[in-house]
């Protein structure tokens, strides 16, 4: 009675094959089947940004993609980004600036921050706010998040110049 399909993909560097229901979203698949609970679901309709993960390197709402659609894709979650050490400076800046309170939006915020900081250059505060326009935070009032991202951008730009 239950319809299932096989899906094979790479999650945080690990090849994974699972038999799942096609109706399972990538967010639910990561949280339930893979126990990667750092991907949060706040609205399940692509509005709040808490479920953002990288799919083939691009920030993607885990709740707007069914896991079967990610067949053959490379998925990276907050856990993978953390363990790879690639967002260590962003996490440190968030910590230092207290750019999080309850932490529920934070993984999505970090994915957005990672994506927007990938190209070189220091974005303006308006550009940072624009990039965050799809990430909802109820606790901080956003300013600390903007501050933290701005600080990392400056720090990275400075390091590049120095090198």
């Amino acid at each position: 009675m239950t319809i299932t399909a096989s899906v094979t993909l790479t999650i945080n560097g690990e090849d994974v094959t699972r038999e799942i229901e096609p109706r399972e979203t990538l967010a639910d698949f990561l949280r339930r089947d893979m126990q990667l609970t750092g991907t949060h679901t706040g609205c399940e309709m692509g509005v709040c940004g808490a479920c953002l993960v990288l799919v083939d390197g691009k920030a993607t709402h885990g709740c707007l993609v069914f896991a079967v659609q990610a067949e053959g894709s490379t998925v990276e979650t907050i856990e993978g980004l953390s363990e790879r050490g690639i967002i260590g400076d962003i996490q440190a800046a968030f910590h230092e600036r207290n750019a999080l309170q309850c932490g529920f939006c934070t993984p999505g915020m970090l994915v957005t921050a990672h994506s927007m900081l990938a190209p070189p250059g220091v974005p303006t505060r308006e550009e940072i706010r624009d990039a965050l326009s799809g990430n909802y935070c109820r606790c901080t009032g956003y300013e600390a998040i903007v501050d933290a991202i701005e600080a990392v951008a400056r720090q990275r730009a400075g390091e590049e110049v120095a090198a």
Partner: peptide, 15 residues
Amino acid sequence: SRPNAKRLLAGKGRY
């Protein structure tokens, strides 16, 4: 800064 925020930043919050 908040010691307990590091866990949340790593996606290791336990809600």
